[in-house]
Design a protein around this nucleic acid. Structure first.
Length: 700
DNA sequence: CAGTGAGCGAGCTTCCGCTTGACTT
């Protein structure tokens, strides 16, 4: 019997369906060995060579506490197996997991079976990027050894993140006096983006501008349309004041209008690429209002039921089998929308590891019942269609439907539009000449858009996109150059430029991904961490920095400008690539960073002043000593405390009254939070009265 | 479903990335 080791148990299950009895497949469930949690766990040696610092880093790996049972299980099975095939994911982390597994198993093997020849003999490394029979067979026929360069790239990443995080967090405890604080290459940049954005908003000064539209009509016909002013006397003209607007209005009101030019062109709108983790999270946030965490939970469930491919991926690749299957589906159901050849999508991200396919339905013929009712399926083979099990629930159906439609649409023909751009000349008094523009757009071929049109989801984004260029897309009557037009009315609008919007989950994930910061498996946890630390808070789904978040960011950016610059991660990634391709040594790369970092750290520890976070005072007086109460911040949130602490230890919760009486004791219901931060409603007489409810409506 | 926290400093906290399961009102 041969043992195959993968990371995900679901993948193990799928694999077992493809492979015969000769294989036993086990999952590691991620990493099984790591640096210790409670200490730095990296021995650092400075071997000075010719007066220069040359560092050596020795990571103190240990089995992860809750994986010990799993490790023992793997060892037992490995002992009874002929070949041990390491089939962890084909990326940096996967290679490292394979190496850790081999190290743990090999040590055991040497103990139990004295080496006869090479102890590497039983270990093989295989990789596949899609879970299909052909990909797995091909992988099994082409085993290799563990790629230590790739493992070293992971070690460099791991050690660097540990050094940054475990050196800077204690510095924050020391300088801010708050013992739950943390800093890291990823989380601190996420907070910085939010702080920087808030300051942009604060510094923003709205500028007045005017938009002047004119309603025109074809002479003798009741066909009117809107054209927008853009040029006066040969120069583009921005209107900033009411006076300027009035000047233009005067010209336009009495002008003679003629069609100056008509430009027609065909526009093609291409489908969006299939989902990857970040785009799935963004789309679910924009369309359903879901948090990244909720999306990932729903996706996990679909994945475990075998309905979709793996949901933590950065690649837009589609397996050849899935392509032929979706093309067959389109050919049957939407025959006019089948392109001549498959549409290829190139992964945009430079830091992508491409270990998995894009997120897509595993069987394209499987639809959810709600979609089936709404989608117009034009083809012949309706009988071939299956439905997803009802047990996936409403949220499962929503997400499945979204993934299904995006995938099928990504292999359909582009939509075609006839766009007409018309310029209109307005000749006013005193030889003043203005130009106006009108644009019309008519869809002539729906293509992939036909799949989205049905529930109007696509429309929403269309509207949003067209708003950004400021011109309304409308149907124009037929117009010819030189044609005179009838002036109807003028529609001036006063507007003000808007500050950039605060980040929500979708836009923050997008920003992080664009900068190559964080990975598919970490976008959702990052959002939790920065809130848990009280660096930012979500108000009406938008992120606002807290005073603490601003203070910590300022402290970090002032003292360590390089690390918390968005360029840091991309430079690190370049170095990691060099380690992976064998041109740089991992200890050298980490050492180049650590030398200056370490020196700076010492100076800051010694010299930087203590940072005070002022959360303000209140009008309330302490009931015990009469001094004012001030707002303090703890791990659990804000609370009121006596300003004379530690001589007076009075504290009080900040409660939000709901205005409802407790059904149990008649006391007052107040908004509270669990240890994990979830809101609930409880009685203010706690612990005397233990009444509690999750929802306001349930209180009765 | 929850009574903490600040400050001091006994002992404690903290990173990013890979995977689920334990929770479930």
């Amino acid at each position: 019997m041969n043992l195959i080791i993968v990371e995900s148990p679901t993948k193990a299950q799928t694999l077992s369906r493809f492979l015969g009895k000769g294989y036993r497949i086990e999952a590691t469930m991620g990493h099984i060995r790591d640096l210790p949690i409670k200490k730095l766990g990296v021995h650092i040696q400075d071997k000075k060579i010719q007066d220069k610092d040359v560092y050596e880093f020795v990571p103190q790996y240990q089995p992860i506490a809750n994986r010990k049972v799993k490790i023992k299980e793997l060892k037992d099975i490995a002992g009874k197996s002929e070949q041990i095939i390491l089939a962890t994911d084909p990326d940096r982390e996967g290679e490292a997991i394979a190496w850790h597994v081999a190290s743990l198993l090999r040590r055991d093997e040497v103990k139990n079976h004295p080496p006869a020849g090479s102890s590497n003999g039983r270990f093989q490394r295989i990789v596949f990027h899609e879970i299909t029979k052909s990909a797995i067979d091909h992988a099994l026929q082409n085993p290799r050894g563990i790629d230590m360069h790739l493992v070293d790239a992971q070690q460099a990443r791991r050690v660097l993140d540990r050094l940054v995080g475990y050196k800077l967090s204690p510095l924050l405890w020391n300088k801010l006096g708050k013992r739950w604080l943390s800093a890291g290459r990823v989380q601190s940049v996420a907070v910085r983006l939010i702080v920087d954005r808030e300051r942009e908003i604060e510094a923003f000064k709205p500028v007045e501008y005017w938009v002047i539209d004119v309603q025109l009509e074809k002479v003798g016909k009741e066909e009117n349309f809107i054209a927008r002013f853009f040029q006066l006397n040969g120069k583009s003209y921005e209107i900033h004041t009411q006076d300027e607007a009035n000047g233009i209005i005067e010209v336009l009101k009495t002008a003679a209008y003629t069609v100056d030019s008509v430009d027609k062109k065909e526009l093609r709108r291409f489908p969006s690429p299939p989902f990857i983790t970040s785009t799935l999270q963004q789309t679910a946030a924009n369309r359903f209002g879901w948090s990244a965490k909720k999306t990932m939970n729903a996706a996990q469930s679909l994945y475990e039921q075998g309905l979709i491919t793996y949901h933590r991926t950065d690649s837009t690749n589609i397996s050849a089998e899935a392509i032929s299957s979706v093309r067959e589906f389109i050919k049957n159901m939407y025959p006019h929308y089948l392109p001549d050849a498959q549409i290829l999508y190139k992964t945009k991200s430079k830091v992508a590891q491409e270990a998995h396919e894009s997120i897509r339905p595993t069987h394209v013929w499987r639809l959810n019942p709600t979609d089936m009712k709404k989608i117009e399926l034009g083809g012949q083979n309706i009988g071939k269609i299956e439905t997803v099990p009802a047990s996936i629930g409403r949220e499962g159906e929503l997400l499945y439907g979204l993934i299904w439609k995006r995938f099928v649409a990504c292999q359909m023909r582009e939509a075609l539009f006839d766009q007409t751009a018309v310029v209109i000349k307005a000749i006013g008094k005193a030889s003043k000449e203005a130009l106006l523009r009108a644009t019309g757009e008519v869809m002539t071929f729906a293509g992939w858009l036909s799949l989205y049109k049905v529930d109007g989801e696509r429309k929403e984004t269309e509207v949003r996109e067209s708003e950004t260029n400021g011109e309304d897309k409308k149907i124009l009557p037929p117009l010819t150059v030189g044609e005179n037009l009838q002036y109807e009315k003028i529609l001036p609008q006063q507007k003000f430029t808007q500050p950039p919007p605060r980040f929500n989950e979708a836009s923050l994930i997008k920003a992080l991904e664009e900068k190559g910061i964080g990975r598919p498996s970490t976008y959702a946890p990052i959002i939790s961490t920065v809130q848990d630390r009280k660096y930012v808070e979500k108000i009406e789904k938008r992120f606002h920095p807290t005073d603490l978040g601003r203070s910590v960011t300022d402290f970090l950016v002032t003292n360590f400008p390089d690390i918390f610059d968005v360029g840091f991660t991309s430079e690190m990634e370049e170095d990691l690539d060099n380690i992976a391709n064998g041109t740089k040594e991992w200890n050298y790369v980490v050492g180049q960073f650590f030398g200056p970092f370490h020196k700076k750290l010492e100076t800051v520890f010694k010299e930087a002043p203590r940072v005070k976070v002022d959360l303000g005072t209140t009008d309330e007086k302490c009931p015990e000593c009469g001094n004012p109460l001030v707002i303090r911040l703890s791990k659990f949130g804000k609370f009121l405390a006596c300003s004379t602490f530690p001589s007076c230890k009075y504290t009080k919760n900040i409660v939000e009254r709901v205005g409802i009486a407790c059904p149990k004791c008649g006391g007052e219901i107040v908004l509270k939070r669990t240890r994990r931060g979830k809101q609930f409603y409880g009685c203010s007489n706690y612990p005397t009265c233990t009444y509690a409810s999750w929802k306001k409506e349930d209180i009765k």
